[in-house]
Design a binder for these strands. Structure first.
Lengths: 112, 112
DNA sequence: CATATATATTGAAGGTTGTCAATATATGGC
DNA sequence: GCCATATATTGACAACCTTCAATATATATG
């Protein structure tokens, strides 16, 4: 255990460096919105069958806002889109969700 | 599996209601900041021995910013403060961290 | 009590995020 | 090609977040 000189510990090195902290907080920020969580939940529940108008009907926001959140999730690799005629069906990317979950779990383990 | 009428599924009920979604996204938002993650990490690493000036020295932000993030973490119940003379020593609240972790895990399980 | 130090609070400035109306793009049917 | 429908994009506005200098508060010491 470190010795004190005056008030402070001599040196305090974070195990979590700035870059990794940024990466994890980015992951968290993507999930940290109620509409996005509900979208992910609906996609998980009705895998592969959900189009944007389904989401628009189920959620308390308008179509451009749904599209906006879908874009954020798409760019994070958490969901994928497949066009079928007029409609675009969205699905969860279980791999990416899994990866994100493991990174978060590892972080929680350090805090535990 | 649901029948389609026109484009959309007939009804799409989120398992995750708006209130629960808000609660989880609040939890996530508290963690979704690199400085707060680094603070939690440092507190976990040096349990009970870390004062604000230690944090200020270890992190790339000024003292009022450290205090600001400490307040957010305190109000979320993730950390506690104990004054000893001039200094205030912060610790992680493992219980709250644990609770939060379990809520997030449960949510991830639904997405998995 | 005056001084010095540690931490908290306030208030201002700048940046980011969330939302929506309006508009654009893509597709299918006539 | 024209119309209707589904989704995406743009741009504007408001709300919120982050940061810091300045200031306030708390405590210890002489």
């Amino acid at each position: 255990m470190a010795e004190r000189a005056g008030c402070c510990l001599p040196k305090l090195a974070p195990r979590l460096d700035a870059a990794e902290a940024r990466r994890i907080s980015n992951d968290l920020a993507i999930l940290a919105h109620p509409i996005r969580l509900q979208i992910l939940d609906l996609l998980a529940q009705y895998q592969g069958q959900v189009c944007v108008c389904d989401l628009e009907a189920a959620l308390p926001v308008k179509q451009p806002t749904v599209s906006h959140h879908l874009k954020i999730l798409r760019e994070a690799g958490l969901i994928t889109a497949e066009r079928q005629g007029l409609w675009i069906y969205y699905s969860i990317c279980c791999d990416t969700v899994q990866t994100m979950r493991e990174r978060l779990l590892a972080q929680f383990a350090l805090l535990g």
